[in-house]
Design a protein around this nucleic acid. Sequence first.
RNA 1: GGCCCCAUCGUCUAGUUCGGCCUAGGACACCAGGUUUUCAUCCUGGCGACAGGGGUUCAAAUCCCCUUGGGGUCACCA
Length: 609
Amino acid sequence: MHHGDRVAEALEVERELLLVRALEKPAPEALGVGVRQLAVARLPRQLEHGRGAQAAVEVLVQAYLGDRAHQFARGQGRFGAHRRALRPLARRGESAGRDSRSTGAYPLRPRTSPSSEEPVTPTPRLRFAPSPTGHLHIGGARTALFNWAYARRMGGKFLLRIEDTDRERSRPEYERSILEGLRWMGIDWDEGPDVGGPLGPYRQSERYERYKAAAEELLATGAAYLCFCSAERLDALRAERTQAHENPAYDGKCRTLDPADSLRRRAAGEPAVLRFRVPAGQTRLDDWIRGEVVFDNKEVEDWVMVRSSGDPIYNFVVVIDDIDMAITHVLRGEEHLTNTPKQVLLYQAFARTPPLFAHLPLMLGKDKKKLSKRTGDTSLQDYRDKGYPPEAVLNFLALQGWALDDKTTVFSLAQLVERFDPHHVSPSGSIFDPEKFLWMAGEYIRHDTLERVAERCAPFVVAAGLATHAELDARRDWYRAAVAAEKERIRLYSELPARIAYLFAKDAELVYQDDAMAAAKKHAERVATLTAYLEWLAPRLEPLEAAAVRDATKAWVKERALAMPALFQPLRCALTGAAGGVDLFEAMRLLGAERVRARLELALRRLAE
RNA sequence: GGCCCCAUCGUCUAGUUCGGCCUAGGACACCAGGUUUUCAUCCUGGCGACAGGGGUUCAAAUCCCCUUGGGGUCACCA
């Protein structure tokens, strides 16, 4: 068939489809997905712009489709795909080979060097590897969340490993705190220091034998060498290089030492570190999020793997552990990107294929710099203590670098697991927005059940000294009603106590806030109004039917030709001491008849002047 | 400074793979209305972005290059 004929035919098909669509008929299946999508998407807009269906079709056909014909004929792009779809027998498959970025499905890399019995595992294994030198950082929490979500989505394993090779700063209580924080968020793990697992131990300090063996192996093969340079020499070297605007890397002085000689010196007690011998050439990695990243090995220094004390260093142990624990995917912060060539080189030295790396964008503070302790609240613990619902934390964290779709901002953990794809994580950093976080916390509280909100608020109420747990339990229904009255006004659990404090205050000691007092005193007749109202209200107080009294009160105000605020502002001040807040009849019910009467009588005096 | 990464409303983001669904969508914040006894919620509307410049193409937010800007990292830390 001639090109021209094809084009004509295709355009005819398109025109027909558009007409079909414009007339609201179902589109025939045979027409191909591309065209259908096109028409479905474009037509409504055209119609919205005030054109009739016929005119809209013409616009589309002429302005939009008309001059695209030659591309169609060449079989390119979407139109080409459309053509191929229309002609299933036509040749396909020019784009057969695709890289890992485009196969959304399953980018797991098989291991290349099956050391005999090691099976090729199809199960993704991901890990979170915090170092217990502080509480769980909010950025670390997101890293954990993403690793966890992907493992769960793929039916893989998620494990926890404690990176405590820094003996000075690592503390057991931080380890506990981190585990607790993860559990609080609802993240669980299949293998870890507390639950064990087949490829443990999962605490680096318990794996030193393994590192020592690996180090000696590398030393024996010459992939690593002993370095006897003193700290002083290294410092001087660094200073010199920095001043000369050069990369302040190790100069390789000990690189060429005779290995046997070095071994003897070490045996004689001379302090030595183990350095990795970085080969010439380039090191590349195919980052899941960023694509190919190439480093010139000249930029990678002969880094230290083992301290002179014999303790191994992060870049070394992380690789050993990831190999031993059969880690297939590594999702971690972007700050690790420049570490990666060192690690890739190590994998090569062990003849292993590296895992698939995904370097997550950094979470930034208002100053656009990496979120750090200095920037404010950065530990998960802080948000927990402040009364953020864990679901909101999870949701908000997931939104830093990822989105469920083009519209949804509030979603559940289950939805995250169902949809999370690291390939669609944004490569650019995100500024942490506390405002939006607060909004989201409120969103979760408003939509949560009363039972749960009441339960989660209780510790804050107790901590504020309003009541004991026992007292709240004893008046369970009352407490719940108090929470119900404020549920949509609080954004954090911790905001509840201040809002219900008026219920716990002694009547005579209720504090009138300035704005409440001012509002009440705007009304000259306040005392008279209140007196009359109290008289009217008293017999209706027991039992108090909130809805009925509310209606009746409004009628009462109307009858006396008063403005609503003339009664409500003094009344609100008298009962709650605040200018805004709960429905007053709800407050009356919560307070009980006696206290309502008492507070009103007190107000007659307190608001008199 | 070297190397590396990044660039859509003030902020979080969709759209970027594979160029035409974009007259660039949503959310927070902000502004204006409505509902309400007030506050909050809720509803309606508004403001508001493809960093700049070159290419490639019939067509560029999307691909390429340059510039600019921002960030990360350069330890016997992780």
